[in-house]
């Protein structure tokens, strides 16, 4: 009897402690991103603010600054802040993985196995992320982000973090299929203080959405043949008209 009660208590405790299931394909709330652009402006340092103001003026004039040039991944925190595309969140033992689309290698690994950040990390555009559950909230700590990774508030407005950035995210469900990512971005080279902002993502389980393969470079290529008749990609003649893209 006592043993049975103990098992029941353990089972209930396990059920209560089980974290929410964040797996699935998540689409960003782009309209909310646009609202955030004007309603929650990062505390830019004065010398950065003048650069940002110039970018806003350039965008208003139809000559947007190309934050996402070179087909590189957006990196952190811009992926979470400004993406217009879906990502897939995979939950596997010891790790949460986020896979994106549109540009190559858009991927975040969030280690959930208790490891610390490496002492001498290789800097990457997505940084090194470790996570843990605090109640129903996934707390993710990210360091080792390459200094070239932008803090972007739109596709035409952003500044490289310039190094030493630290990001803390508190990811939680606000409804069964609505996920909030509360970000605290500390970037002492470009921000006067930690910037707090939230981004929203939604999943549509009945839609069976999948993310698509995303290779940014494909836009510059078209299917063709080499001299042996092999199927290869060749430069895309349509793209010789650079006018379709804003050229800085």
């Amino acid at each position: 009897m006592i043993a049975g009660c103990a098992l029941w208590v353990l089972a209930v405790s396990a059920a209560v402690a089980k974290p929410p299931d964040l797996s699935g394909v998540w689409l960003p709330d782009v309209a909310d991103q646009s609202r955030q652009e004007t309603q929650n402006i990062p505390p830019w340092k004065p010398e950065v603010r003048s650069q940002i103001q110039r970018m806003i003026a350039d965008e208003d004039a139809g000559h947007p600054f190309l934050v996402l040039n070179h087909c590189l991944p957006y990196g952190m925190p811009s992926w979470m802040l400004i993406t217009h595309n879906a990502f897939e969140l995979l939950v596997t033992p010891g790790r949460i993985t986020m896979l994106g689309e549109v540009d190559g290698n858009r991927m975040r690994r969030i280690y959930m196995d208790g490891r610390p950040h490496p002492a001498d990390p290789d800097l990457t555009l997505h940084g090194h992320s470790i996570g843990r559950w605090v109640g129903d909230t996934l707390v993710v700590d990210t360091t080792a982000v390459a200094p070239q990774a932008y803090i972007a508030i739109s596709e035409a407005t952003g500044i490289p973090n310039n190094g030493d950035m630290h990001i803390v995210e508190r990811i939680h469900l606000t409804a069964p299929d609505v996920m909030a990512d509360d970000l605290e971005i500390t970037a002492p080279k470009v921000l006067t203080r930690t910037w707090k902002t939230t981004r929203l993502f939604r999943r549509y389980p009945s839609r069976h959405f999948e993310i698509t393969e995303g290779e940014c470079a494909q836009e510059d290529l078209v299917a063709g043949k080499d001299k042996f008749g092999n199927d290869v990609f060749i430069d895309n003649p349509q793209n010789a008209d650079g006018s379709v893209r804003p050229v800085k």
Binding site: D58, E59, D60, G62, H63, P64, F65, L66, V67, L68, N69, H70, C71, L72, V102, D103, S154, E155, A156, C216, A217, E219, D220, A240, D241, G242, S243, R245, P246, V247
Partner: peptide, 15 residues
């Protein structure tokens, strides 16, 4: 023709 030195990637629609 407007030759470019690098892929443009994703960009703002402000143009």
């Amino acid at each position: 023709l407007a030759l470019a030195g690098a892929a443009f990637g994703h960009h703002s629609g402000a143009a």
